[in-house]
Simulated assay, not measured.
Amino acid sequence: MTIYQKVQAVNHLFNQLDKDLGSFQQSTGLGCVANCGLCCLKPDINATALEFLPLAYHLLLNGETEQWLEQLQNNTEDKLCPVLNKVIAPGSKGFCSDYAHRGLICRLFGFSAMLHKNNTPTLVTCKPIKEQKPEAVAKANAHIASKDNYPLISNYYMQLRSIDESLGEELFPIRIAIEKAIYAVLAYYAYRELPSKDDIV
């Protein structure tokens, strides 16, 4: 499978997830607190390189890979996601500077479930949502408990790994995951013709 095909496969998974999340949120009323972004400010977010392959490919097409690698390597003390907008600019939709190419963890957190002991599914969400949207949280918990359709984190990571086990298996701090994704794209095109901007994703 080429890098482009892997990027397409990851994006296909993300598109399906977006539909699943949209259905879950519509059924429960669950949603982010406006202008929050606290989850993006966590310094210990882990991700796989594969979920950021579309971002890395996008950076390659725009000639931004070297700039990003320099930023990542020169700011090793910074543990926050490099895609993060620390201040919401006027007209901006949120804290993510490249929302279309955010990772799987960014899409799942807040609106999905994970299996605990005895394979019991439990809602994974944040403190602001729990405190400010208790009715939606209660509805989401009831929805999950009823074994109705809901986004289960492990299912999506399993599908991700099936695209490329080596890039989709191991979790890294998010900055390292993005760096590894960029290196994977650069390594693939080291001896190949660079893709056209028409292949932008």
Rank of each mutant, 00 (worst) to 15 (best):
I153S: 05
Q67K: 15
P54C: 07
L30P: 03
V10M: 02
T28N: 03
K93D: 10
Y150D: 01
I163R: 06
P121H: 05
Y157F: 15
K19N: 14
D44K: 09
K139Q: 12
A177V: 02
A177H: 03
Y183T: 02
A145L: 09
K139D: 07
K93F: 11
S162G: 00
L167E: 05
V83C: 12
H58V: 02
Y183I: 13
T122D: 08
G29N: 08
N149Y: 12
L17K: 08
M158C: 11
Y4P: 03
G29V: 07
N118K: 01
G94Y: 02
S23D: 15
L84G: 04
N149F: 14
A89G: 06
F172S: 08
G63F: 06
I45H: 00
N35D: 14
P195I: 09
H143W: 15
L194W: 04
C39H: 08
H101P: 01
L30T: 13
H143T: 10
E170F: 11
Q73N: 15
K130V: 04
S154M: 12
P173H: 12
I182F: 12
P151K: 06
C40W: 05
L59I: 07
Y156Q: 10
G22Q: 12
L53A: 04
L30I: 08
L55Y: 15
Q25V: 12
G31C: 10
K139A: 14
R102V: 00
L186Q: 14
I144E: 11
A136D: 03
Q5K: 13
M1K: 10
K86W: 04
L60C: 01
P90Y: 10
L13C: 02
D98M: 07
A138T: 11
C96F: 04
Y189H: 03
F95M: 10
H116F: 07
C126P: 09
L69I: 14
T122Y: 07
F14T: 03
T122S: 05
P151Q: 00
E193A: 14
Q71H: 15
D44F: 14
I144P: 06
A100V: 05
L21N: 15
H12R: 14
I153F: 07
C39A: 02
L186I: 07
F24Q: 06
V87A: 10
C36I: 02
P82W: 09
I200W: 05
N11M: 10
T76Q: 13
L13M: 05
P195S: 09
I3D: 06
D44A: 14
I88A: 01
D148W: 09
L50V: 00
R175F: 09
D78P: 01
W68Q: 09
I200Y: 09
G91Q: 01
H58G: 05
C36A: 06
L55K: 01
Q26S: 15
E135D: 06
K19W: 09
H12E: 12
S162R: 14
L41A: 08
K139N: 12
E135G: 01
P82D: 12
E77H: 13
D164W: 02
E64I: 07
A49C: 06
A184C: 00
M1V: 08
D164S: 06
H116E: 11
N15V: 01
C40S: 03
H12P: 03
T48H: 08
S146G: 10
S97D: 07
